[in-house]
Design a binder for these strands. Sequence first.
DNA 1: CTCGGTGCAAATGCTTTGCAATGTC
DNA 2: GACATTGCAAAGCATTTGCACCGAG
Lengths: 144, 144
Amino acid sequence: MDIELAKENFTKYLKSGNYRITPERFVILESVMNHDGHFDADELFLQMKTTGQKVSRATVYNTLDLLQDCGLISKYRFGENHSRYELAFGRPHHHHLICLECGDIIEFVNDRIEKVQKEVCETNNFNAQTSTLQIFGICAKCHK
Amino acid sequence: MDIELAKENFTKYLKSGNYRITPERFVILESVMNHDGHFDADELFLQMKTTGQKVSRATVYNTLDLLQDCGLISKYRFGENHSRYELAFGRPHHHHLICLECGDIIEFVNDRIEKVQKEVCETNNFNAQTSTLQIFGICAKCHK
DNA sequence: CTCGGTGCAAATGCTTTGCAATGTC
DNA sequence: GACATTGCAAAGCATTTGCACCGAG
């Protein structure tokens, strides 16, 4: 949750890729770090709009891509028609249980899955960058 | 690959859900069963159009949803902006390695992942229906 | 001062919807 | 005959793009 460290990482990433250091990019990073849980691009855009920080939708999308590229956030498609993001910085890699009824998303961490993934990648000589395991079904609340 | 059995299953599913038995739905099922690997809705629509079987796009989408509901096909979002489908009937549950460079999709089966999933669901009292593990990275061909 | 980034609005592309016509039950 | 399903075209919605302007390096 150290926002200064995240900013540093982002700055480093931008410089190394010859991207420019713009105020908009850091305003968006801050907004992202203040978000709990999952959010989507438009949600972020509207929230920033109402709090008086004006950045365009285009810039939000562009910056979210950069933040994903440098590993500060993760991007998912949970079977919906839009992408969702979440903070990855300082958090362990995890997976998701998605309730088809209420839409709730439950996170879980599991070392064995990570281990199996590594093995599968070695077997296939595949150079993994990201992975996502999504289990769709009905959560405890909904099937009772 | 037994198309008759698939048709039977589909018929059973349609009847049990009070859906009607229409020729379009079975034309689409056949077209799906003749497809190797992954395909998307528009691909299927265009292929059917060129082979003289006319069904509308709307019906293709509608029917693919039904086929997914009754478990004959699976639907995925591989980080693209459209859904992809594949035949599930008569095939073991499997997962995917997706190459970010060439777009190739490698399938793999792994019992341990299935076992861990089951455990996670039990722990969370979660009633799983489907799951997908997607590993994104660079395939053997591309990083050499 | 150059060229990458931004904002805006229009464009894109997948998917869904409205509605009249059709055909299953 | 009733009403779910179909086809078509139009609408929706998330995301991308074109372009003039701006500002980081």
